[in-house]
Amino acid sequence: MIRFLTRRRGGARADWTDWFSWAYLALGVLVMFGPVLWLVLSSFKTQSALQEFPPSLWPMGQKQVAVPGSDRPLPVFSLPQPDGTSVERVMIRRVGLEGQFIDPADPARHVERARLANVTPVREMHFAIENYIEPLRQFNFARFLGNSLFVTIVATAITLLINAMCAFALSKYEFPGRNGIFLFIISTLMIPITVVLVPAFLIVTGLGLGNSLWGVILPPAATPTGVFLLRQYMLTIPDELMDAARMDHASEWRLFWRIILPLAAPALAVLAIFSVVWRWNDFLWPLIVLNRQENFTLQLGLAAFQGELQTQWHYLLAMTVVTLLPVTLVFAFLQKYITTGIASSGMK
């Protein structure tokens, strides 16, 4: 067994670097995935289970069963018997320090009495699904979710369209000012939003986009990295295709829309994935533009909710899971595009 585990390609025995690598990777899985897993497990705990210290790994709650004669499920306790064993009984009533219990398998039998100090609650795995439902009903989370979806989808569509148009012109035409325009676009990389917060907010307000989702969508819609990525890809598409279409009197727009754009689909897909992740996760810019709750995105809603209601962790954790879900799905299915996108353009 040991021989098998330490075997390597080429027949050489494992040395210290192999052991170190495996230990590091095991630790890595724990540290990188552990916190997220803990969040997901915790999000299914009831409010009282969340207050336990030390916390249990799995979401546990007191076992409850429905018995005839009661309109809601009743808690189950473990009652010690004289012979040292214990049995599970349902508490139907509490009288002072004593409880009245019945056998859930045989509810018609006589009522047993026991002191509460002697019985222990029976615990079982219990998933508090209501953590996910209540915030959507009681608080504005359904609204936040809708706003986030709107911003993400519309902004990504706009980003793809205008960046592809720009990249098309820069890669397929010779025109005066082309290099200047390209340099200008690339140089805006050096101006992150953090440097122009105040005046950018002024302009958005001046255009009447303050406190509107369009104020969140438009300013970051033109991305220098997106133009760059698409331009590099379109440069590899042969111009002959366009010349052939020109013979058939296709307009310049149709060359772009019918010929180049479909051929640039792989690069568009990479940009789309990035745009979805950027927009879904965006925080600082929406924080400045939006200040009325009904316009909040999910990220703002979460941040506001955690500031206001410190104790409502059961709702907060569940909504955090909802927020990380789309990105996790994108990651699970499209990981390859993301990693090649980063390796080829250095964008994030």
Binding site: M32, F33, V36, V277, W280, N281, D282, F283, Q299, L302, A303, T320, T323, L324, V327, T328, V330, F331, I338, K348
Partner: peptide, 9 residues
Amino acid sequence: YPVLLSPVV
């Protein structure tokens, strides 16, 4: 994986 998570999350 954590690179894709939002800062708030």
